[in-house]
Amino acid sequence: MNALYAGVFKRDLSLAFRQKGELLQPLMFLLIVVCLFPIGVGPGPEILQRISPGVIWIAAILSGLLGMERLFKDDFNDGTLEQLILSGLPLSGIALSKVFTHWLVSFLPIICLSPVLAMFLHMSLPMYQALIITLLLGTPLLSLIGAIATALTVSLHRGSLLVSLLLLPVFIPLLIFATSAVESAAMQLSYGPQVAIISAMTCLALASAPFAISYALKVSQH
């Protein structure tokens, strides 16, 4: 546990903060995409409010995918992954730690930024509350599932577009329930069921993804 923290988590975090540009790019991307919508569809508050949950969620998914490639690629290319596999640490633990770091550096800033986005799009307070709950529960799922696809394609030369193509359809259920939760909140309805389903999906991914990722990483070494 300690070795995982000191050797993997701290390392990934210091690497991430060493490349500040790459850290900020997905965030700027998200901000700009969300800003484009009022320009594109007109600034009418009603339309913006109606499309706001979808816009924010889609932008979050896309910007999350931007940083996804980095998750294992550099480590694979420079041989760090080999050394990690041979370190005697459980590979699933390493995978989980890397996924957690990815979530911390790419999704947590988005969640912190979300009040600003909600204001841009005229979200009401109940809508915003629902949005932040779905983001908190749903974005770990994006990181976990995304990491499986990234690990599978890590040995390919140009895998990034393929990862996006593989992943976007997989995220449809999450998108449906997340936006539906926010819409229910807009109509003052209970959105408990949607949140429960998102949590269930995240729990399932949390329990199984580390093993899938570690298997994919082992296969990448062949």
């Binding site: 390392r11 690497l15 420079d78």
Partner: peptide, 16 residues
């Protein structure tokens, strides 16, 4: 745990 393996790739992160 009793092994040191050094491959073609140095296993060093370029940014560190």
């Amino acid at each position: 745990r009793r092994l040191v393996y050094l491959g073609h790739k140095a296993g060093l992160s370029a940014g560190l």
